[in-house]
Write a protein that binds this DNA or RNA. Structure first.
Lengths: 411, 411
DNA sequence: AGGATTATGTTTTACCGAAATACTAAAGAA
DNA sequence: TTCTTTAGTATTTCGGTAAAACATAATCCT
């Protein structure tokens, strides 16, 4: 088993090899974090305070393993000619890639991303999946995955696959409970593992956790602009995740961040989860649209139009959602001390409508607002962020422990 | 600067010395975690999968620095005579100690604890401090600290001091805001640092965070029975802390865990914090006792008597508190996935009264209750747990980086 | 054009820490 | 006593990084 020098509280003594693995990971992380700037071996040495000799040896090893690519002078958009011998530009390996999958009530997605964060191939299909039995949906996703994988550039090395799901996943058991899909006590891995994806190690993850990762990292191993934030995945249900220092807080079983079921008002409407007055019952997409007098499938543009036209029902519906979000998010911020909120999904597309009521509510209810007022931002709109985050998660494992993917030089 | 091999994401390359420091910390942690069992050098080697030679060399260094003591055969309650040469029993150093201080609305405390978790000297004074000006209280604590330190055994080495306070501490600024004390924008370090404690590095911390640490660790570096739990410090105000894997989740500014201001009912009574319906307004000690028709200072026994006698007001007051706790704690558990709740302070002493209503409320409102039902336990009753946790926190720094406290052998 | 300058990348040597191994020490068991 | 078993120590070897010298490839300057 590999020793964990960078992990919390190693329980095994560190040896020389551990030192090397730790530094190898540091070099990989440094190069990944710097992208899209291309570091040279000397830059790596400077950034890590290793000597050039040491950094160079480790880079050579990563290049041999494909975790890092040496770019030729032609691949480089050379910006400034500098004095001295030019360095060899280094970039995360373009041939190491992972498959990210997502199942949502409204769409299916399969996406392959490489260590540079480039999408090598993808497939997204929308449509109401709630009606279909799980086996059919899973087999469709499996077939699409096979198709996507067949379109990869030659020489690509797939290191893993992860499936983002809107629900609670019991990781150890492989069990899933996804109320919005109408699925319960299912084992998606059993179906997917028997098809095209049989060869690939497939794991599952919560959609909000993985979408939050796609916000926390702008490319595998490369931090996004926000180190700490609360992510809200606002669709039919409301999923949530809290990111601290670039890492999703998962809790012991991976069920942390269920913000959709924070209690907004104990006297509020009852929720299928067994509780009353959950945030989802006020700011979930169906509830919000129904209150605004719109159909389930109404696009956010339509709601924005109605509000712009001062439509009574629409304005009231948005105000209620913002009121509920203010109460729930204030509690979340008071508990996690993470004063930035990223709204994703449907909520992200109506952030502008919510802000007027939400900002003052948070300033009133958040204890630390006096020193640091909470800020609300909308997530970058993009399809299937859970699939992107799922691929990032698999690729992060390569950057965290590149020794598993490289071959030691014989001598 | 010391390189952090065990910390999250080191940014500097690891060298040989880092390896040694990492292993030195591992040995210190292993010996501290095993107490009150006394490991031998061979046991340490076995537990860490180092060779006996390596473990022995590191132990020698810790013994030379006083971080570890070699016990003589007389100090040992020898349990089982075994075959082979007996090992030298090792224990955490008894002469390395830290000062824990606590200021509460109802008492002051100063306590010195050593690496074995033994209380070497302490001073606790109760009385209503809300009336006194901060300078008077701080000077009184300073004088008491001097007295406590003068009573230490000869040869004791004090490594630090920490002050537990019921409020929000802006660590970088040294600023404090403690509504229950009536203190705001104060710098306790300025007053304390000028007196007896001038020589000692003094830091501040939130009372609930530190009391939670005293639950998480039964002695410095030694894990308690619960790796994950939510701690509620229920006094006049309600402080909170979430412990995950033995560590308190502090948030970016150290303000995480403010469970007392989770919203229970948005239409509830207004709170000095600026919000409405905070948990504190239902389950805080003053509110609870007033609703039960008792004086502010009524001891928990009196409330228990009234409830046992089926006193209408008392039963109703307890039911309201349990109802509010159920709503707030369910949200906390849904967000952190930490299904054990430890009730401390006043709430800990009436846990028996709360449980009947609290248990079913949590089972109904916690999403994961289906797989893992939340459990409620009362904290060990004891005076000034914040002071104990404060001392533990300072001593943890020694165990985490013993190289700073040991002297390298000359050769 | 051609040497000086400057920074990159590699090679060599030295040092340091842990592993491997052999050895000594101290107890119980036969 | 003598053998066995386990604890602790000394010595050698091995692997990894630091330090410094060296080789290389560009720009700068005359």
């Amino acid at each position: 088993m590999p020793l964990e020098l960078s992990g919390p509280r190693p329980t095994s003594g560190a040896r020389q090899a551990t030192l090397r693995e730790s530094n190898l990971a540091l070099v990989a992380r440094t190069i990944a974090a710097a992208a899209p700037a291309y570091l040279s071996r000397a830059d790596v040495a400077g950034a890590t305070s290793m000597t050039r000799a040491t950094a160079s040896r480790l880079v050579d090893e990563l290049v041999a393993g494909g975790v890092v690519d040496e770019l030729g002078p032609d691949e480089l958009d050379r910006p400034v000619p500098r004095r001295g011998r030019p360095g060899t530009p280094l970039a995360p390996g373009s041939r190491i890639a992972a498959l990210g999958l997502q199942i949502d009530a409204g769409f299916l997605a399969a996406r392959v991303i490489n260590l540079r964060g480039q999408v090598l191939a993808e497939w997204v299909a929308s449509g109401d999946l709630v009606a279909s039995p799980p086996e059919v949906v899973l087999r469709r996703l499996d077939a699409a995955s096979g198709d996507v994988l067949s379109r990869l550039p030659a020489g690509s090395r797939l290191v893993g696959a992860r499936l983002a799901l809107p629900g609670i996943v019991a990781v150890g058991e492989g069990l899933l409970r996804a109320p919005t899909l109408g699925w319960s006590d299912l084992r998606p891995v059993d179906v997917l593992g028997a098809g095209t994806l049989a060869e690939l190690p497939l794991t599952m993850g919560n959609e909000a956790d993985l979408a939050a990762r796609a916000v926390a990292e702008s490319a595998p191993g490369r931090s996004g602009p926000l180190p700490d934030f609360v992510y809200l995945s606002g669709e039919i249900g409301i999923g949530g995740a809290v990111v601290r220092d670039g890492a999703v807080i998962t809790g012991r079983h991976g069920w942390a961040g269920e913000i959709g079921h924070v209690c907004v008002d104990p006297n509020g409407p009852s929720c299928p989860c067994g509780s009353t007055g959950c945030l989802e019952r006020y700011a979930g997409r169906h509830t919000l649209l129904a209150a605004a007098g719109l159909a389930d499938t109404a696009p956010p543009e339509l709601l924005r139009e109605r509000v712009a036209a001062s439509d009574q029902e629409a304005c009231q519906a948005v105000a209620v959602a913002a009121w509920a979000l203010g109460i729930a998010l204030a509690s979340v911020i008071n508990m996690f001390d993470v004063p930035t909120v990223v709204l994703g999904g449907y909520l992200g597309q109506i952030t502008g409508l919510l802000r007027a009521d939400l900002d003052p509510a948070l300033r009133a209810r958040v204890l630390s607002a006096r020193w640091a007022a909470p800020t609300i931002v909308a997530a970058e709109p993009g399809s299937a962020p859970g699939a992107t985050g799922a691929a990032f998660a698999e690729l992060a494992a390569v950057i965290a422990d590149p020794a598993r993917w490289t071959v030691r030089p014989a001598g």
